[in-house]
Design a protein around this nucleic acid. Structure first.
Length: 269
DNA sequence: ATCGGGACCTGCTTGC
DNA sequence: TGCAAGCAGGTCCCGA
């Protein structure tokens, strides 16, 4: 479900409910996620005050006076803010109770997500990540340099978290369409000029998606239970066979490393 | 070193 | 109607 805009939407939504609150209890109902939930999490976090709610790539980082709770939503995860205790549903794996009475509840049917306790802001899953796409240290030159000598296709390149983080399947398709670049193009053959267009397209589509509250396709809901509205702005994702919004030819689809890839043969070269 | 594919899960849609 | 196959927003890890 969540790519960077959905994670950022969630972060911004939960932040005001969490900062300056004290954690009164942590409940782990199911610890078998992508990796086991850190066994010390409940003991370390309970009684502590939350000082920040940040995001790095698709990880949420809840900063406490001492240590961090790190959450990844995987494919089907979501966080909700509950004003009061309600009976947990199937797949509600984790609760964090606050002194305000609010509960932060984690749901993840497929259990591809993860929840870790971190003593410090360092983790093997964080330390190898590339730059943030909306940061100043990411631009066309970043992509150009990472692509030299690479035979892999450009879509796989921009979805590689070691190159740039946060670009998942929806926004990779959208950004390549906006930049007029065919997803199957070998990354090593693309000019720096076109990589500048692509980096700009990535920034643009992510910013617009964040402003719209993310993309709700099947089951993504914001922390308040409402959907995001960027779905209506998608130009190619989930539109295979439908007319290109530019030239009206039917959109083509292929699979690239197992992922649905939609593009326009005329508008993307 | 680089790359593609498998693996991890559940739930919904599609097609026979 | 029922059942099985196929597919889904992620990404680590392994073997080639």
């Amino acid at each position: 479900m969540p790519e960077l805009p959905e994670v950022e939407t969630t972060r911004a939504g939960i932040e005001p409910h969490l900062v300056d609150r004290t954690i009164t209890a942590v409940t782990v109902r199911e610890n078998r996620l992508r990796w086991p939930v850190s066994p010390e999490l409940s003991q370390m976090a309970t009684g502590q005050t939350i000082v920040s709610v940040e995001r790095r790539a698709k990880y949420l980082l809840i900063g406490l006076r001492r240590g961090f709770v790190m959450i990844h939503l995987g494919m089907s995860g979501s966080l909700r803010i509950l004003a009061q205790e309600t009976a947990p549903q199937r797949h509600d794996h984790f609760d964090m109770m606050l002194d305000s009475g609010v509960i932060l509840r984690y749901r993840d049917p497929r259990r591809f997500g993860s929840i870790f306790w971190l003593d410090q802001l360092s983790h093997r899953l964080l330390d190898q990540l590339g730059p943030e796409p909306l940061g100043e240290d990411f631009d066309g030159t970043t992509l150009f340099k990472a692509s030299r000598g690479k035979a892999r296709n450009v879509k796989t390149l921009i979805m590689d978290a070691g190159v740039v983080v946060g670009v998942g399947n929806i926004y990779a398709n959208e950004a390549l369409y906006l930049a007029g670049i065919r997803p199957t193009q070998p990354a090593g053959k693309i000019t720096i000029k076109r990589y500048h267009r692509l980096a700009d397209a990535i920034k643009s589509v992510l910013e617009k998606a964040i402003a719209a509250g993310g993309t709700s396709l099947r089951d993504f809901l914001k922390e308040d239970g409402k959907p995001g509205y960027f779905r209506h702005a998608l130009k190619v994702y989930d539109r295979a066979g439908e007319p290109c919004l530019g030239c009206h030819k039917p959109l083509s689809s292929v699979r690239i490393t197992g992922r649905a890839t939609v593009f326009c043969k005329r508008c993307q070269r």
